[in-house]
Computed example of a mutant assay.
Amino acid sequence: MSKEFFNDLFESFNNKNILIVGDVMIDSYLWGDVNRISPEAPVPILSGIGREDRLGGAANVALNIQALGANPILCSVIGDDLRSHDFFSLLDNQKLSSEGIVRCENRMTTVKTRVISQQQHLLRVDEEITSPIPEVTEAKILGQFHTVIENNAIDAIIFEDYDKGVITPRVIKRIVSIANELGIPTLVDPKKRNYIDYQNVTFFKPNFKEFTEGCKLDLKKGPSDELVQAACKFQEDQNIDILMVTLSEYGVFISKKGGANYIVPAEIRNIADVSGAGDTVISVATLCLLQKLDLNKIARVSNMAGGLVCEESGVVPINKKLLLEECLVKITD
């Protein structure tokens, strides 16, 4: 592919309006050094602590969309608690809209705290409520969805599902129905709880574990005829146009319903942290799909992006310039 092709492609991402529906959270980090063991119990002592809060979950998808030049709008539920103020501050700092965010007094704002020493994760603490949101909150988030759709020309909708309870079967069915009526593509980064509720969507991106568990399959990881057969059956049953299964060290499988399928080999990387890679993959795939790239290139560009963020410590969005440079070097056909 020519330099002009990729320059034009990445330029075309600018100003697309992407609505992201899903579980937002705060990724909180405690950084320090471990030099001794506690005399009180056989556990390491972290000293010289630094603290940092970042946007996580569906909000990290928003950061990736923003980093690629497009305009993200979040639609989600958080608690009416102290940490909700921190979440709104993080949105403000990143110049992200809060118009689709609903506060729920009976929930807490999800916070994942990672304890890290010398780029090694020692511990993660999750503060969360993962039960499905009640009907009254479903009605509120669907109301916010309608407001966002009415006030913005939405180019695509991403479901970023972390099984934290914001996305329910009712929310999925209603949003997909409206999106299909309006001709808006729907893309899904699923988890187990709602797996089979995603029907009639445009693009579905589980990882291998999510795919096998969601479909109740016992498959050996990696490319195989069994994977192709299972993928084709799942696409037909769920009426999914494009299925992309990430296979980590084996690359990516991508398939068009009733059409072609490809295996894209993995990129060789110095992996530091895989957290948030799926957020990056679905973000890049969304914008590539909007520009009508073929299946092979959607998989290659988004897989490359996921690999790039894995070289960074902690959850970080994609660097658009670095991704463009890699595309220019590595994708030549």
Results as ranks from 00 to 15, higher is better:
195 Y>T: 10
195 Y>K: 05
196 I>Q: 04
198 Y>S: 03
199 Q>I: 13
199 Q>V: 10
200 N>I: 06
201 V>S: 03
201 V>R: 04
201 V>E: 03
201 V>P: 07
202 T>E: 08
203 F>D: 12
204 F>H: 06
205 K>R: 05
205 K>I: 02
206 P>F: 06
207 N>V: 02
207 N>R: 06
208 F>A: 02
208 F>E: 05
211 F>A: 02
212 T>C: 08
212 T>E: 00
212 T>G: 01
212 T>M: 00
214 G>F: 03
214 G>T: 11
215 C>G: 00
215 C>F: 00
215 C>K: 09
217 L>C: 05
217 L>R: 00
218 D>C: 00
219 L>N: 00
219 L>D: 04
219 L>S: 05
222 G>D: 11
225 D>G: 13
226 E>Q: 12
227 L>W: 05
229 Q>T: 04
230 A>R: 05
230 A>Q: 11
231 A>I: 11
232 C>R: 10
232 C>N: 07
232 C>H: 12
233 K>Y: 07
234 F>C: 11
234 F>A: 07
235 Q>C: 11
236 E>G: 01
237 D>F: 00
239 N>C: 08
240 I>E: 03
242 I>N: 01
242 I>D: 04
243 L>N: 08
245 V>S: 07
245 V>N: 09
246 T>E: 06
247 L>K: 08
248 S>L: 08
249 E>M: 09
249 E>W: 09
249 E>D: 08
250 Y>V: 04
250 Y>Q: 03
251 G>H: 14
252 V>N: 02
253 F>H: 07
253 F>E: 04
253 F>I: 02
254 I>S: 13
256 K>R: 15
256 K>W: 11
257 K>V: 06
259 G>T: 11
261 N>I: 09
262 Y>K: 03
263 I>E: 09
263 I>K: 02
263 I>F: 15
265 P>W: 12
265 P>M: 15
265 P>S: 15
266 A>H: 09
269 R>S: 06
269 R>K: 10
274 V>S: 05
276 G>D: 00
276 G>N: 08
280 T>W: 06
281 V>C: 04
281 V>G: 01
282 I>N: 01
283 S>P: 02
283 S>L: 08
285 A>W: 12
285 A>K: 03
286 T>H: 02
287 L>R: 03
288 C>D: 11
289 L>H: 15
289 L>K: 14
289 L>D: 08
289 L>Q: 12
291 Q>C: 09
292 K>H: 13
293 L>R: 04
294 D>S: 14
295 L>P: 11
296 N>V: 15
296 N>D: 15
296 N>M: 15
297 K>I: 13
297 K>D: 13
298 I>E: 01
302 S>Y: 10
302 S>E: 11
304 M>T: 14
305 A>G: 14
306 G>M: 09
307 G>R: 03
308 L>T: 02
308 L>N: 06
309 V>E: 01
309 V>K: 03
309 V>G: 07
310 C>F: 07
